[in-house]
Design a protein around this nucleic acid. Structure first.
Length: 415
RNA sequence: GCGGGCGUAGCCAAGGGGUUAAGGCACUGGGUUGUGGUCCCAGCAUUCGUGGGUUCAAGUCCCAUCGUCCGCCCCA
């Protein structure tokens, strides 16, 4: 095999594209019902945006970005996530001047140089939501509720919401040193990854999957316990809002996001049916990001969901829809073949989906293809019809067949 | 970046050293007149991801390489 799609990318073929459209349509409906408007930032940005936004010590920036230098000597990166670009756009166009709060959503491909596996590709697609300009705990709850509504509209159930608070920057600083102090004596018992994180990014040790490391963490200080009273009550208010909305969630004190910009609320929505990549949606609050990137202080919350993972779940449920073709045009003989396309166009102009058979093979063969096409009607044009100006209209389910004048075709099919 | 599994037609596959590479789906043609969904017949891999090696003999064994899948890491 010579030419193949690049590793970690794949084609979404016509048989599958209906599912994608359904997912996108459902999401768009839910989001606009909640007052969110679509924004379409570019697919690549200056590398610096992601380095400053996501954080230098994160894996995404450290080893997963598609970065390159252009002919004009600009350092460019294919976006590995959506929030940084939306925030850059928000600042550049002073969207904060258009009202106190901006409700935005986006959809499109993201790029990360990772080893592909189930639910993980190098080019993947996300739908994301950003609610900028408020630190009201109800905003956090709204974001989570809209995520849940979106997943529900798509037709997914059996998902679980995990919730945590990573506190303010100060809280995290305090927790970070408490955790480091606690773990320091056990340093040699930690797995190698966790050892190197001890100085670089100790919070990440919490969600290590190494058993021994998890044992050591049993008596470690808890992030939630070190929150200042203000962060604590903020978290409680988010929780009571969710409870008022009847949204089930589980507190996961070890849930830490891999992107540095998160503060306070962090959440994830998971499925048990996805193997190792079980998060279908993840997000949280990022109060410091806008100012970090040069904009005004802007408290914000947002999330993103991975479309490939949603599609995987829908495929398991075998919900692939198929678009019906209403009419299949069969013709044989030179004169008949010459009028067939004109009749197809006439039907399309009358808003009737129409396909035609170009094969000029035996009627029997053309009927077979008509049957397999899933069409409900067949139109048959032979020498006799070409001469008379009428056609045969056959209902493929009932087998009933009538002679119809060309001029009356559209109304005959409409019934 | 690390670990493991797997590559036989468009798809699902059998074959595990002995020479015409099963079978099924799909596709194409036919079963004499212009009618489908069933049925019957025929066709459809000079070759087993690729390159080397071992052997009288390799789809079958060995090495390399590429691809793919799953896991680690990380994330959606």
């Amino acid at each position: 095999m010579g030419l193949l799609a690049v590793k970690g990318t794949r084609d979404i073929l016509p048989d599958e594209v209906g599912l994608w459209q359904k997912v996108e349509r459902s999401a768009r409906e839910v989001l606009s019902l909640a007052g969110y408007r679509e924004i379409r930032p570019p697919i690549f940005e200056f590398t610096d945006l992601f380095v400053r936004g996501i954080g230098e010590a994160t894996d995404v920036v450290d080893k997963e970005m598609y970065s390159f230098r252009t002919k004009g000597d600009d350092d460019i990166t294919l976006r590995p996530e959506g929030t940084a670009g939306v925030v850059r756009s928000y600042i550049q166009h002073a969207l904060h001047a258009q009202g106190d709060v901006q409700r935005l959503w986006y959809c499109g491909p993201m790029f990360r140089y990772e080893r592909p596996q189930k639910g993980r590709q190098r080019q993947f697609h996300q739908i994301g939501l950003e609610l900028l300009g408020t630190d009201d705990p109800r905003a956090d709850a709204e974001a989570i509720a809209v995520a849940a509504d979106t997943l529900k509209a798509i037709g997914l159930a059996n998902l679980s919401v995990s919730l945590n608070s990573v506190g303010s920057r100060e809280d995290r600083q305090a927790f970070r040193s408490a955790l480091t102090t606690y773990l320091e004596p056990f340093k040699n018992d930690l797995d190698p990854d966790s050892q190197s994180r001890l100085t670089r990014n100790p919070l990440r040790i919490l969600d290590s999957k190494v058993e021994r490391t998890q044992e050591l963490l049993v008596n470690a200080p808890q992030l939630l316990d070190t929150l200042c009273s203000e962060s604590r009550s903020r978290f409680d208010r988010v929780r009571s809002q969710l409870e008022a909305l009847g949204i089930q969630y589980a507190i996961d004190p070890k849930l830490v996001r891999g992107l540095d910009y998160y503060t306070h609320t962090a959440f994830e929505i998971q499925s048990d049916d996805l193997g190792a990549q079980n998060a279908v949606c993840g997000g949280g609050r990022y109060d410091g990001l806008v100012s970090e990137l040069g904009g005004p202080e802007t408290a914000s919350v947002g999330w993103a969901m991975g479309l490939e993972r949603l599609i995987l779940l829908l495929l398991e449920k075998q919900e692939a829809p198929r678009l019906p073709v209403d009419v299949y045009v069969i013709s044989k003989g030179e004169a008949a073949e010459n009028v067939a396309l004109a009749i197809a166009q006439q039907l399309r102009a009358g808003n009737i989906a129409t396909r035609m058979d170009f094969s000029a093979s035996a009627f029997k063969k053309q009927f077979k293809r008509a049957d397999r096409s899933g069409a409900t009607w067949a139109i048959i044009i032979g020498d006799a019809e070409a001469e008379s100006g009428s056609v045969q209209l056959k209902h493929l389910d009932s087998g009933e067949q009538t002679t119809v004048n060309r001029a009356d075709l559209v109304s005959a099919i409409r019934g």
